[in-house]
Design a protein around this nucleic acid. Structure first.
Lengths: 358, 358
DNA sequence: GTGAAAGCGCTAACAG
DNA sequence: CTGTTAGCGCTTTCAC
């Protein structure tokens, strides 16, 4: 034996206080054998293994992974940065990542950037201090410094939600352009012609740009007039009231509009309620569509037509990418694009389901 | 100088590869001075401090907190166990914890127990391997082993949501009993008399028991007949359909019932939709109330009367408790009970807002 | 199959 | 204000 941790106290330490050396002493082996018995049981003679396990159990020993990480140069930690946890979609993505990684013994450190790229950079820097084996980003945009930090770190990075034009490393998301295109097409097929798209704040936001593009392309392809994209701006969190305000404005300024496609279910639901309040028939007089497939849309009346986004599956796929990079030593930089789904409900179901074509 | 990390390569390492010794060499000081300059700048002469900071910046040095944790015997990590992330309330609580702790430089490891106490115990065990400075529990029940593990660990533990009868350490929640009592009272004041309470699965669930008690007490106090509490059971996640099914059953079996108080907004919303489908007037013929104040309830028609629970504030308070224990070295075991709020909306707003009295 | 030596990168504690 | 010494608790890398 190379050390006797009990020499001063004469007592074996219990629980978290117990060290590997305590177990070694109890089992009459060295730390190294304890380490093996716990992590690579096959490499230890069954009899020894039993003794070690019994000793560990007797004092409730839980190995200190902080110490382990330091030597092994693998922390078993994955960092996840989200703009907020109060948005069920990001929470779902985290749950997806967690599902896959927890099974592999990896722990998740979750940080939220409060929708500020500056804060995101700070969070990434803090995360890197923990020497994570990988980082998952769900935010929209990153500062150049953040990108450089991540690139230089050499660890696995998965950017999610956006299909980044120039990804740092790996990425998994869906096409916002195609989704907006598909939903616009759905509205056209339902007989709407004078369709307005309401976007979120577009400053430095690829997502917003892609969705606008999808809308415009679909309108052009159908030979319909591309109307100016409106921008929803709310103070703080996204609110239904903003959707209500916007649809009021649209109806006042441009009464011939017959459908509005909102970049978020929250706005769309606010718009539906506002229409009902003012006796504006949805879907007859006005079609309304949203984005995200939140629970809200299922419950509002008329129920909301929307785009279902693969939030959970994005998280799972991000987890899988990390695992294969970590375990398999894969050197590829996969970029996955997952399918979205148009969910047609009452808010665009015109009785006269007029066909777009002639 | 006590070491020269560049002796072999002759090169300074960059980014995450850089060690404190590299910075020390660059700045012409020892590691200890670098350590101080970075963590306790006041204890270092300004001139030296500048040199160290410049050196650190020049190679993009980010201190390795894993190593720091090992020596300092403080990991700066807080573990949070939630039953799921797909429930916005738990996500909100995490965000609250994060708000408070991130500002103090603490990182959150989030684990989810999938609503299984066995899994929770496993998650706690895994968490303890990281030697967190504190653990926040949002789950309902814990295995005896989990409680023992936590107690023996000696770290700060905050149990949230439930006001545990016999807390492991600290706790912050609200009174489910009082909340159910208050909502039942609200229904009575609105003129309802034959009120049924629909609970969640009550096996080993204090919360369910407390809510039942609150309902019963309020009914008794008003001299009304306490009706059998029904139990909602759904496979997997809580679903509106279950609420629909239950209200159908209630109306069929006990037609004189004039109000149903559901233990979750999700059930309540399902019930409202079901009533509308069958032309059962809400709130006239049937009052409906929920619990949690989810977004859903604001949007359904008629809008849902519910109990607002302080999810975010619970998280924040948990964070504050941890900080004061960690920083202040407080030795108390605070138990906070935060206020809920009855949110009266249309689903219980009888035109004949009959007074309960005679 | 098991052990001994060495050290991961940092900080506590004390010295000066 | 700065430095020295001595580990934290574990795993890597050879030996045997």
């Amino acid at each position: 034996m190379d050390d006797d941790p009990t020499e001063t106290t004469g007592q074996t330490r219990h629980g978290l206080a117990a060290r590997m050396a305590d177990i070694a002493a109890l089992a009459g082996v060295t730390k190294m054998t304890v380490s093996r018995a716990l992590r690579e049981p096959d490499k230890v003679r069954p009899e020894t293994r039993e003794r070690v396990h019994a000793a560990a159990l007797s004092v409730g020993y839980i190995p200190n992974r902080t110490a382990g990480s330091l030597t092994a140069r693998m922390s078993g930690i994955v960092g996840v940065v989200v703009p907020t946890l109060r948005h069920s979609l990001f929470a779902e993505t985290i749950e997806g990542v967690s599902d896959v990684l927890a099974a592999a013994g990896l722990d998740l450190i979750v940080a939220n950037s409060r929708y500020q790229t500056g804060a995101e950079e700070a969070q990434i820097r803090a995360l890197l201090g923990r020497r994570p084996d990988a980082i998952v980003l769900t935010s929209l945009t990153h500062t150049p410094a953040a990108r450089e930090l991540l690139r230089d770190s050499g660890i696995a990075v998965v950017e999610t939600w956006e299909s980044a034009d120039e990804p740092i490393d790996m990425s998994v998301g869906f096409s916002n352009r195609d989704a907006a295109h598909a939903m616009t097409g759905e509205l056209i097929r339902s007989g709407y012609r004078r369709i307005v798209f309401v976007n979120g704040p577009s400053a430095g936001n690829e997502r917003a740009r892609h969705r606008s593009e999808g809308y415009r392309a679909a309108m052009r392809e159908a030979g319909l007039q591309v109307r100016p994209v409106r921008v929803a701006r709310d103070v703080g969190a996204i609110q239904p009231e903003t959707g209500a305000r916007i649809i009021r404005k649209i109806i006042a300024q441009d009464p011939e509009v017959d459908a509005v496609f909102f970049t978020s279910d929250v706005y769309a639901v606010g718009a539906i309620l506002e229409c009902r309040k003012h006796g504006i028939g949805v879907p007859e007089r006005m079609g309304i569509a949203g984005f995200h497939d939140l629970d809200l849309g299922r419950v509002v009346s008329p129920s909301l037509t929307t785009v279902h986004v693969p939030a959970l599956e994005i998280g799972r796929e991000a987890g899988r990418m990390i695992l294969s990079r970590l375990k398999g030593g894969e050197t590829e930089k996969p970029r996955a694009e997952l399918p979205f789904r148009i969910v047609a409900r009452e808010s665009t179901a015109r009785a006269s389901d007029a066909n777009a074509g002639d």
